[in-house]
Design a protein around this nucleic acid. Structure first.
Lengths: 189, 189
DNA sequence: ATTATCTATAGATCTATAGATAATGC
DNA sequence: ATTATCTATAGATCTATAGATAATGC
């Protein structure tokens, strides 16, 4: 049963969106192509008409997820530059983000997996991180551009690390403490 | 062929040390029990005499790796408290650490994997992180104990995040920039 | 006699591919 | 006629276990 050109595009989108959630929730090795396609409502075999390999899918998924996130950050920076940094930080360093990795930052859920994969996936992550950084550089204080950039890099790293720790720890109080400590240390312009 | 009581203990140590390297290098799902035992010079079947499950092994491995690291940090803090923070930071945020995950911090190589596993593994990571934090609290500046703790939490998070990013990025300059930015932002007592 | 390690295997995965099917779109 | 998806399968994994073997240590 063939489907329309339009339906093909929809199916492809559906695979990417399903994979975006499942990879982040279960890790790259935690979900197989067959189960993933089943979740997307298609069969295992249909996958290879859309993507050359599972790793190729992750590259597309990573670019897709970062694009959406960078877009949101940009929107906040454009609409309310004064409070954007605080808003981004509160959103990132929240219990909601911690408890829903399937909707969250790919670096915190897939960073070490991606570090072990090929250039295509790593390039997608790199472009995404650069997008995040570009927004942050506009929002942080600093005497000159170099100082702002350094501040943005250090702040981004602290946010990523706090979320990795908050998720892995088996101590709710300490988990919350990490998120709060980094939230409170965010630079205000 | 049975071996001596002493050899059994040595074999167990060898499994743990081999696993400590391989899990961090390849991820929890990236190395199987059979290959792991082969690397340790034993057969697949012998594994289950030493550990109840693969996850159980990771719990022991995590505790083992953190103990060694916390011990080193403690040694530096005791021997040269003035320069210990800088020394820990330079060591952690180095190309050597980035390029040899098999010898490095378990949070940066296995954090997201561990976040998806059971309480035993997560407790081992939690105890280890608390050990690291206890050392850092002594080394960072701060008006009172609460301020020091907050500083230690934020600094630890930044170190973890910078290493996760430095490893995942496909851009050597940006990778180095993240490590340098966090190194330069370390609080000096 | 006990037991640490061995070989062999069960049963369940995994990615990727080959060939059949059937609806679209020229 | 083309092609997106389907079923079925190859071939290679995976964790865990069962039962055999043989050296230790009472």
């Amino acid at each position: 049963m063939k489907v329309s050109r339009e339906q093909v595009a929809l199916n492809r989108e559906r695979i990417i969106e399903t994979a975006a959630r499942l990879f982040r929730e279960k890790g790259y090795d935690g979900i197989g192509v067959a189960d993933l396609m089943k979740s997307a409502g298609l069969t295992h075999g249909a996958f290879y008409g859309h993507f050359a390999s599972k790793e190729d899918l992750l590259a597309e998924v990573t670019a897709h997820a970062f694009n959406a996130s960078v877009e949101r950050w940009r929107g906040k920076a454009a609409q309310a530059p004064e409070t954007a940094m605080a808003s981004i930080g509160e959103n990132y360093l929240s219990e909601r983000h911690r408890d829903e990795p399937g909707q969250g930052c790919s670096i915190t859920s897939l960073g070490p997996d991606i570090a072990r994969l090929g250039p295509k996936v790593r390039q997608a992550l790199t472009e995404g991180a650069k997008g995040h950084l570009a927004v942050m550089e506009e929002l942080v204080p600093g005497a000159d551009q170099a100082a702002k950039r350094k501040q943005a890099l250090a702040t981004y790293a602290a946010m990523v690390g706090a979320m990795v720790l908050a998720r892995a720890l088996d101590d709710e109080a300490l988990s919350l403490e990490f998120m709060a400590a980094v939230r409170d240390s965010l630079p205000a312009d």
